[in-house]
Write a protein that binds this DNA or RNA. Sequence first.
DNA 1: GCGTTCACTATAGCATACAATCCACTAATT
DNA 2: AATTAGTGGATTGTATGCTATAGTGAACGC
Lengths: 238, 238
Amino acid sequence: MAPERAKSSGTPRTRTEKVHHALRNAIIEQRLAPGSRLPEDAIGDSFGTSRTIAREALGRLAVEGLVDLIPNRGAFVANPSLEDGRGIFTVRRALERAMVLELAGKIDAATASRLRDMVGREAALAARNDAEAIRLAGEFHLTLAQLTGNALLLRYVTETVSRCSLVLAMYGRPHSADCGAREHSAIVEALISGKLDEAAALMDQHLAEVASRALLNSRVEKDIREVLSAYAREIDTA
Amino acid sequence: MAPERAKSSGTPRTRTEKVHHALRNAIIEQRLAPGSRLPEDAIGDSFGTSRTIAREALGRLAVEGLVDLIPNRGAFVANPSLEDGRGIFTVRRALERAMVLELAGKIDAATASRLRDMVGREAALAARNDAEAIRLAGEFHLTLAQLTGNALLLRYVTETVSRCSLVLAMYGRPHSADCGAREHSAIVEALISGKLDEAAALMDQHLAEVASRALLNSRVEKDIREVLSAYAREIDTA
DNA sequence: GCGTTCACTATAGCATACAATCCACTAATT
DNA sequence: AATTAGTGGATTGTATGCTATAGTGAACGC
């Protein structure tokens, strides 16, 4: 009667979950431009599955707010307005501020070195690959959320981080990727030395600055199959 | 190429959406007990659709965190632990604090009287009908969220309010309903007179008290595993 | 008597087939 | 020429059937 308490596995086990994650990454990494159509067949073809899987993944992405679903018309990569973007950042700042404060007493030595390590990798990649840098910068925030042990907080931070990536893709300046490493490092050090209020302030400031980089910018659209073929390989090997 | 800007329609148009909404309501209203199995066949039969629809709805509810999906095992109504409950309240406090601060300059005369009116109705009902009072207390928070004009914030506040209701239903004391009216009134007055920081502090305190009243004193353990986990550790070491 | 193994059954995972809907294009009428 | 009605093609919405997997109970060995 009672369900298992072990859940929210890190690795996707079903095809649906794999496609769901792959599509989310594709959107977050800005490989799929906001507003792009996402036909079920094309997605199914790309990942070597049926439309059923693609359709289910799209439905879940719609709940996450990364995809707009229009009945009988299809799915589109979410296309938030500038005002929506500001609202998303507002929510994210509130969440991540709470997140930092929740980390009280949850940073042990092992965790500390793990965080330092992660920030180090970020700094190394900052000037290089865009997609990888974006992913890593997001993962930093996700890791902190995970450390709180608060499942709902993790869920919401995950969603807002994703949506912020999308907003930055639409309105941010081209090379806004290298922003994070130093600021992340400062936050980590504040956390490790137990200065939570300072860490919270730094985080708030960090996100405020990221948000302030919202300016007009447009992107070019590519063929969906071409973009997704790379992601399809990901799930084959899994 | 660009998608419609009209989205998130109020009324569900596809069968999947209808089942999705229906199931969500059923869970939030506790018609489906936490931990209950949700077999695809049974859901399909209940709504007169195929398993496909039920399956899709369950997947979306899983993203929302209202359902746990275990591969090859099935779907279960989420069964938040007491700790989860605390986490939910933490998130809610962060969100509603931000919400109050976002209301700067958005309370005109008409809105002010509308809020006073609403709180007045709450006060009148406080000692009477429980279900109605609970509904009104929730609506107060939802109304404020709506006034911010922030779509994501509204969605998250709506979700957390729902979940808090669920948590209170599981772990809260019977007569924890009569808490709100006076505190709500104080918040409204602070808002109207433009003292946002004071309003935010009041809101934070208000929610903290609701949480502590319900959760801290609760000794009810609905989940056997929770009780036994402490004993299980002893056995492991032996 | 207890534990282990193995077959069985129920249910989820997935693909395919069919039906419904919308859009674009055409053509005819005013 | 513009507008509207109609038709074809493409894409989504839904149901059903097959396959794979995990729990369940019986038979067997210890």
